[in-house]
């Protein structure tokens, strides 16, 4: 599978389908991107679990930290990796030892590990790399568009007023599909700096 660009339908299906998300590398420091991505997803109704061995005993927006994926007391649908790219392989191996298996491995913006992705896909998991679930959720629901971001979606339905804990509709008409010329060029530029 091509991991340079994703169809909106692929991302949409994942974000509509998962409920429980373990975020590995979540930080309790309220100015770190992992903190505000965690908080946003919790506010949008996901069952969020912060995973960070250095923070056990503390909690993040009311959710207690656990040391590792193994320590989670319930099935998880998605593992969101907020670590560096090298850390992704052992984390995927740990995720693949869980029973039941998670359905999705998601690596954050800037995180990409093709070997880890191939392992997860071979076990039947879906993989997203180098994306932020907060940005993708905000984009597909068009909540993000206050920033002038191209949501690549359209809708003629009245927009909801988002409230605490509310899941927003991600099922708008998709425009870009994900595979735009510009996105392909961005991926090429990254893989093959001039």
């Amino acid at each position: 599978m091509n991991h340079d660009t994703y169809d909106d339908s692929y991302i949409r299906e994942i974000l509509n389908g998962v409920k429980t998300i373990a975020m590995v590398g979540a930080s309790p420091v309220n100015v770190r991107p992992s903190y505000f991505a965690f908080k946003y997803l919790a506010q949008r109704g996901y069952d969020m679990i912060p995973v960070n061995p250095g923070q056990v005993g503390k909690s993040l927006v009311g959710k207690p930290f656990v040391a590792s994926l193994r320590d989670i007391d319930r099935p998880i649908d998605m593992v969101d990796i907020f670590r560096n790219s090298e850390a992704a392989l052992p984390l995927v191996e740990e995720a693949l030892a869980l029973n039941p298996l998670p359905k999705v491995i998601w690596m954050q913006l800037g995180v990409r590990n093709d070997e880890a992705a191939a392992k997860a896909e071979a076990a039947g998991l879906k993989v997203v790399m180098n994306r932020c679930p907060k940005i993708e959720y905000g984009r597909l629901s068009s909540e993000i568009s206050w920033m002038g971001v191209n949501s690549r979606t359209l809708s003629s339905k009245r927009a909801p007023v988002p409230t605490q804990g509310m899941r927003l509709s991600l099922n708008r008409v998709s425009v870009g599909g994900g595979g735009t010329n510009a996105a392909d060029r961005a991926a090429r530029n990254k893989n093959d700096p001039a």
């Binding site: 068009s142 568009s145 191209n150 949501s151 359209l154 809708s155 003629s156 339905k157 009245r158 927009a159 909801p160 007023v161 425009v175």
Partner: peptide, 8 residues
Amino acid sequence: HAGAQPDP
């Protein structure tokens, strides 16, 4: 249509 949606 791009960017516009009926007012919430």
